[in-house]
Nucleic acid binder design. Structure first.
Length: 494
RNA sequence: GGCGCUAUCGUCUAGGGGUUAGGACGGAAGAUUCUCAAUCUUCAAACCCGGGUUCGAUUCCCGGUAGCGCUACCA
């Protein structure tokens, strides 16, 4: 059997992302989606989104919304969409097929309630006593009386039977039937279990590659059993190493907070393509030292062979000193890289709604002027609010007048500089080059270094020492506002 | 407990029977520009442990250890 997408005998790949809506979309699920999507796009295959919502008790609308919100933000899309709850007949039909072949049996044992000994300290549980051997007549008779039962798979355990499959990532996998319990196919309320529903749908939807988390690796033996019992050839499997927290445990919202939720990244100002890029580098490598990659470059480079087997740590800080430090530093760096790679116009468009949401009236034209000044100074889109605040406000927030004092200078020097600036600026054209010439000349006249001249002006105008380059800043800010802020600074110095 | 998977700098990873074990993030130092950022240069930083196999193992095999997963009428 060939894995090559170009092999004439292999069917068009069909892959699926099948989240169960029992929680928000977390980063591990997002990565699974992305890898499936990449595989589909790479091979010209079909990407299917399937909601695995057979657990009626735990499903929530909020979760469905969270999944769609997250996927919508990623912006990758999908080709087909299904919901397991619409397909109950299909699942029951497969259960019936397996039962008719004698490969499953009714288990009338009441559902296990206590969760105390679930980790089975006492040993391996394989089946409930008496049920596997129940005669068909007896089984039919009890069922006819309306006695509830679960349908269990009759795992072949005689003569050291083995179940095997080849995982595209983990290689040859073999397990003895003697180590597989008689898992349930149907619950006593008639609802299919995950294993059954998943396999029935994968078979019906002609899924060719199942790319999913490694937590399913050992379940796959059961799935192979189901496929074969129902008369289908199992698809190819590719299991992904898990994403774990810095403490090595599985990512969970309860333990690790909002950093595991996709929407947190969106709200913090990540670019979806940067987030996708980051996730791809967790557990996969293009093997050529490339890190910053566009979605198209990822498609071109993606292959199942590049996936590795060890779990990957999402290196966030658990109690984060600042919101920005909460994220994996590499994710933040990649985001800054993608921001810098963005055309100014695109960046400006993304920034505008954030600024407006923060309550500032600002025109697209003005945002377009500001964007290039901060593009190399922000790591997250939201940083625009702190990096360019002085452009947005009318009145600068209070700052320490001592900031106005230049290196190796004193208040008198600051005053002299600002007075000089205030005197010459009205006659200067507010564009980069004229401002540059005028202010440098002024510095020379005063016998000061350029830096000593520029700093008081920068602080007067921006309210702090660290800001974009001065001339561009003044140009965008405009003459009127600049002069007014210099006047205000002068007052602070008296 | 049983079964399975995994193990290279702090983190993500490349590599692979003989290498100065490579890159990136982060950290440190320096260069540079009007500050900051960006950029550039340099530095520190790793093959889990023990046995084999071999002339030679970080790489292959076995064992240990550790971590993770599954062991539900959850998914």
């Amino acid at each position: 059997m060939s894995n090559s997408p170009n092999a004439p005998s292999s069917p068009k790949p069909r892959v699926r992302f099948a989240p169960s809506p029992t929680g928000f979309l977390h980063v591990g699920s997002a990565r699974t989606f992305i890898f499936n999507w990449l595989y589909a796009r790479r091979t010209g295959g079909t990407m299917i989104l399937r909601l695995d919502d057979t657990d009626v008790e735990r499903n929530t609308d909020a979760s469905v919304n969270s999944i769609f919100d997250g996927l919508k933000w990623l912006g990758l899309g999908w080709d087909q969409e299904y919901k397991q709850s619409d397909r109950g007949a299909l699942h029951r039909h497969m259960a019936q097929t397996i039962f008719d072949k004698g490969l499953a049996y009714r288990d009338f044992t009441p559902a296990h309630t206590g969760d105390s000994e679930k980790s089975g300290v006492q040993g391996t549980w394989l089946f409930n006593p008496g049920m596997r051997e129940l005669s068909r007549q007896e089984s039919d008779r009890r069922a006819a009386t309306g006695e509830p039962f679960a349908l269990r798979f009759r795992v072949p355990r005689d003569a050291g039977q083995l179940v095997r499959f080849t995982d595209a990532v983990y290689g040859e996998q073999i397990k003895s039937g003697a180590d597989i319990e008689d898992f349930a196919l149907l619950r006593s309320d008639g609802m299919p279990t995950y294993h059954l529903a998943s396999c029935a749908d994968d078979a019906d939807l002609c899924i060719t590659q199942i790319i999913r988390g490694q937590d399913h690796l050992s379940n796959t033996f059961k799935h192979v059993l189901i496929f074969e019992a129902a008369g289908y050839a199992p698809p190819q499997f590719a299991h992904l190493p898990l994403l774990v927290a810095p403490d090595g445990t599985k990512l969970s919202k309860r333990r690790h907070g909002p950093v595991v939720s996709v929407t947190t990244y969106r709200d913090a100002g990540f670019l979806p393509e940067a987030f996708i890029n980051f996730l791809c580098l967790l557990g996969w490598s293009p093997k050529n030292d490339r890190e910053h990659m566009s979605v198209q470059e990822l498609i071109d480079a993606f292959s199942l062979e590049g996936i590795n087997r060890a779990n990957a740590v999402v290196n966030f800080k658990d109690p984060a000193p600042t919101p920005e430090e909460a994220f994996d530093p590499k994710a933040v760096w990649l985001n800054a890289e993608h921001i810098r790679a963005l055309p100014v116009r695109d960046l400006s468009q993304k920034l505008l709604p954030l600024v407006r949401d923060a309550g500032f009236e600002i025109s697209p034209e003005r945002m377009l002027q500001i964007a290039p000044l901060i593009r190399e100074r922000i790591k997250l889109l939201r940083d625009v609010l702190t990096a360019a605040d002085f452009f947005f406000v009318d009145q600068l927030p209070p700052y320490d007048p001592a900031e106005l004092i230049p290196q190796k200078g004193d208040a008198a020097m600051a005053k002299k500089v600002l007075a000089k600036a205030h005197a010459i600026l009205p006659n200067v054209e507010f564009r980069h080059d004229p401002l540059d010439q005028a202010l440098r000349a002024a510095a020379q006249e005063l016998g000061l270094k350029a830096g000593q001249m520029f700093q008081p002006i920068r602080v007067a105008v921006c309210g702090r020492k660290n800001a974009p380059p001065l001339f561009e800043t003044l140009e965008v800010l405009g003459k009127e506002k600049t002069l007014r802020r210099i006047e205000q600074a002068l007052k602070k110095l008296t």
